[in-house]
Design a protein around this nucleic acid. Structure first.
Lengths: 180, 180
DNA sequence: ACCTGAACACCGTTCAAGT
DNA sequence: ACCTGAACACCGTTCAAGT
């Protein structure tokens, strides 16, 4: 069999959606793509590099071009929630190559309208840290429910929306005060 | 050889400090403690449970009893920076068992002076998400420098202090506005 | 250019059997 | 009560050799 780099990344993305991060191994991915494990290393340098590409793939479904930070944050959360362990994968990449996370760049541009260059960068990272941490907690809770360790709680969904809005509002309010 | 649970946790804590999360395996830990790998499972249920105990150990060096959220956040950051990959380990636990992270509980109590119960909980988690994400980025950068992938940048240290203060200030300002 | 086969050096976890 | 030995079912990565 023969694969392209794009197919390797797409395969990893779909494996993540189906099995989560714990179920995404190079060997299993190779089997899904009908190649030997070693073949993957012709297309990607390492699993780490592959995960970075998968993170970009996750964020590709992100509605770029948000008008304001509030909707940018909401859009980021929505994109992360589409994929199992999405926040954990993107967190990993944000920590290792922060420049490659598109929402951080877009938020920086939005904040640059009201803040200096350094402050805009800090503000963007503050928002992204909150969103990634918040969604990681949500999704890890989901994994525990899926594994039958925690009971399913239908009320939690609504509370999450509220808690997320509360946090984003607080951060943006604080940044606004600082900007004016 | 014979070990106690406390020795297993302390050994894992020291292994983390010395080798980082990537270098902390159950087999290696067993070797350090002079027992067979299987012996560890008499004292801990799983690696995940052990990491939760290590996270508590990291936070034990945290100056509990902070007077205000600002110094609580600074203290949390300081404790995390003492241990290689400290933020990643605590993030992991915060996502899986949020109630067991002491700083979240303390922050919640501090915020409860000015906010309702639900809001105080959300506020505490907002601050903790920011601190964990911020320090994870700092420490992963350190790991890349250590591995020789990124150049050492002495100016970054000072910038980090500023960026952290900026983020915490923004969040707390926003929460204050909301509280009054 | 791209892949296979096979190996290297590891993992976490379980469990009968020992003391 | 606590540990060992040995196994099970995996990992990520490399690399000569093949087409």
């Amino acid at each position: 069999m023969k694969v392209t780099r794009a197919q390797v990344v797409e395969g990893a993305f779909e494996a993540l959606r189906a099995h989560g991060l714990a179920g995404l191994s190079m060997r299993r991915l190779a089997q899904d793509l009908d190649v030997a494990p070693g073949a993957l290393y012709y297309h990607v340098a390492s699993k780490q590099e592959l995960l970075a590409a998968v993170a970009e793939r996750i964020l590709a479904d992100w509605p770029s071009g948000a008008a304001d930070p509030r909707s940018a944050a909401a859009g980021l959360r929505r994109a992360l929630l589409q994929v199992r362990d999405g926040a954990e994968v993107v967190s990993f990449v944000q920590a290792f190559r922060p420049e490659s996370v598109a929402p951080t760049r877009e938020l920086r541009t939005l904040f640059a309208e009201h803040l200096g260059e350094r402050e805009a960068d800090w503000a963007a990272r503050t928002v992204v840290h909150f969103v990634l941490g918040f969604v990681a907690e949500e999704q890890n809770h989901d994994e525990l429910v899926r594994a039958g360790i925690l009971p399913d709680d239908p009320a939690r969904q609504a509370e999450s929306e509220e808690a997320f809005a509360f946090g984003v509002d607080a951060i943006l309010t604080g940044l606004d005060v600082r900007a004016t």
